[in-house]
Design a protein around this nucleic acid. Structure first.
Lengths: 183, 183
DNA sequence: CATCATATTCGGTGTATTCCGAATGTTCTG
DNA sequence: CAGAACATTCGGAATACACCGAATATGATG
């Protein structure tokens, strides 16, 4: 195929955008695996391929979603630490977003916020339930107490594990786990 | 407070059921944290406090949900390895369920099915995109390729980590991580 | 402090999900 | 193989959610 420079550029441009779209679609699917909306995957993907922070209007333009949709989606992704808000000097109050590319960091934040809270709530419930059951008599009470305590033990372990996971870099962890595997 | 045996029994029974209900409600909340429906938390909780496998009708009776609701919920929880189906000898084809109490096992199964598939799909997309981008020219193509490769690197690391996590018992992992922390 | 640019929130609409009761399958048993 | 005892699937109603466009709030700037 002989094509002049102009034609080649056009073809390449298509291929480049197709490659980008392919990855973005995979990200849409991944988002759903982890219980997030498809649209989050796309918005994240758009940011991922951008080399500078992108404004809300930029995201609206590239995604085709309404501004209100993008605004709320970015708020939620920001809470999940999947994206960061940045202010750009000289651009007034305009907000810019960039993608967090370190997924381990995202997971750590999820662990130390959502999971931590879940563990706290459950732990309080288990303590309270155990107290009631200790005061009560009967085999039912004993049987329930045993279960509650075993769950309590499990949550205690989880809590310790959580502490370790949220305070170690991924390099340290993978290094350690590699050693583990070789044992 | 002087109460005779009858009264004390009644009060204890109340307290015992209240303790159980308290934990079940915490489980309902936990289910929602991890993107599952409240009803799953309750059904799981009912099983958790049962000392023998419980039939579908038993779950219907204890939960108050319709049988169809319980049936589909249990199928889904079974897929997630949160509960197990058991057949009880002499009970014909009746299905019985019991709760899986080892949460690490549940997580491992999730990793080796859902996450593994997610990684595979993404990896294929990244390979295909990289191929297209290598064939193309221009700074856009170069910039995109760099991002695609970095994501690819991240997924490669995740894949190795996944292999380690899905093949180690929680005891081994916590033991190792405890050592890590002391370093 | 008024105006402009921008982000957020609100109310409505269409779509997906949850749950129900009824209908249908499926498997064991006489 | 007929019927009983189940589980599963189906269709529909109520509810929750995503998305939109319009209205409102917030912050920057002259």
């Amino acid at each position: 195929m002989n094509q002049d420079a102009e034609d080649v550029d056009g073809t390449d441009e298509d291929a480049v955008q197709q490659a980008r779209e392919e990855v973005i679609q995979a990200l849409e699917r991944s988002a759903e695996v982890y219980g997030l909306n498809q649209s989050y995957g796309r918005l994240y993907g758009i940011l991922f391929f951008e080399n500078e922070p992108l404004s809300l209007d930029g995201l609206v333009e590239e995604s085709g979603y309404a501004k209100s949709t993008v605004s709320t989606a970015m708020q939620k992704m920001n809470r999940l630490h999947l994206v960061h808000r940045r202010s750009v000097p000289g651009e007034g109050k305009k907000v810019f977003y960039e993608a967090e590319t370190d997924f381990w960091h995202v997971i750590q934040k999820f662990l130390q916020h959502e999971v931590r809270r879940e563990i706290d709530v459950m732990t309080r419930a288990l303590d309270s339930a155990a107290e009631r059951l200790e005061d009560a008599d009967g085999e039912q009470a004993d049987a329930y107490l045993e279960r509650v305590e075993s769950l309590r033990t499990m949550y205690d372990r989880s809590e310790r594990l959580l502490g370790i996971l949220t305070s170690s870099s991924i390099e340290r962890l993978t290094g350690l786990l590699d050693r583990l595997q070789r044992d």
